[in-house]
Simulated scan of single mutants.
Amino acid sequence: MTSVEMADTESGAVEHRPRARRRLPWRPVLHWAVVAAALGYLVWRVPDLAAQFERLDHVQWAWVAAAGLSGLAALGVYGELHRQLLLVGGAHVPASAVQGITFAQNAVSTTVPVVGGAGSLGYAINQLRRRGVDSALAAWAVLLAGVITTVLLIVLGWLGLAWAGRVPIRLAVPAALVVAAGSAGVWAVLTHPAVLQRGLTSLLRVFGRTPGTCRTCRKTWLEKADAAALQLSERVARLRPGGTRWSILLILALGSWGFDFFALIASAEGTGTHIRWAVLAVGFLVVQASIALQILPGGAGLAEAGLLGVLVAAGVPAAPAAATVLIYRAISWAGLSLVGWVVYALQPHATPSHRHAPAAPAAVARSRA
Score class of each variant (00 low, 15 high):
174 P>Y: 10
4 V>W: 06
124 A>W: 06
13 A>S: 10
138 A>W: 02
155 V>T: 09
78 Y>I: 13
247 S>G: 15
332 S>N: 12
3 S>K: 14
244 T>Q: 08
9 T>P: 00
251 I>M: 14
141 A>F: 01
68 G>A: 11
274 H>I: 01
150 T>Y: 03
162 A>Q: 06
30 L>F: 12
57 D>T: 10
63 W>D: 07
95 A>M: 12
254 L>I: 12
77 V>G: 12
77 V>C: 05
209 R>E: 15
259 F>M: 12
215 R>M: 06
364 V>S: 14
190 L>R: 02
151 V>A: 04
224 K>C: 14
334 A>R: 11
128 L>A: 12
291 I>S: 09
120 S>I: 07
96 S>N: 09
296 L>N: 04
324 T>I: 12
71 G>N: 14
267 S>W: 07
285 L>D: 11
278 A>F: 01
146 G>D: 14
363 A>M: 01
256 S>T: 09
227 A>G: 02
99 Q>I: 11
99 Q>R: 10
349 H>R: 02
188 A>V: 02
83 R>W: 08
165 G>F: 04
139 A>R: 04
339 V>F: 10
157 G>I: 10
166 R>H: 05
245 R>A: 04
267 S>H: 07
137 L>F: 02
113 P>K: 06
67 A>K: 08
4 V>I: 09
150 T>D: 03
102 T>D: 06
267 S>C: 09
314 A>F: 03
285 L>C: 08
95 A>L: 14
4 V>L: 12
244 T>K: 14
61 W>D: 11
18 P>G: 08
200 L>R: 00
64 V>G: 02
252 L>N: 08
294 Q>R: 05
89 G>A: 03
11 S>Q: 01
266 A>R: 04
70 S>K: 02
168 P>W: 13
221 W>H: 00
108 V>Y: 01
311 L>R: 05
178 V>I: 15
271 T>M: 04
241 P>T: 07
347 Q>R: 09
352 P>V: 00
129 R>T: 05
156 L>W: 07
269 E>G: 13
253 A>R: 12
15 E>Y: 04
327 I>G: 02
320 P>N: 10
69 L>I: 15
75 L>V: 15
36 A>R: 03
52 Q>C: 01
342 V>L: 05
288 Q>S: 12
136 A>M: 01
314 A>R: 00
274 H>D: 12
60 Q>G: 06
57 D>R: 11
223 E>R: 07
168 P>F: 10
14 V>H: 10
112 V>H: 04
327 I>M: 03
282 V>L: 08
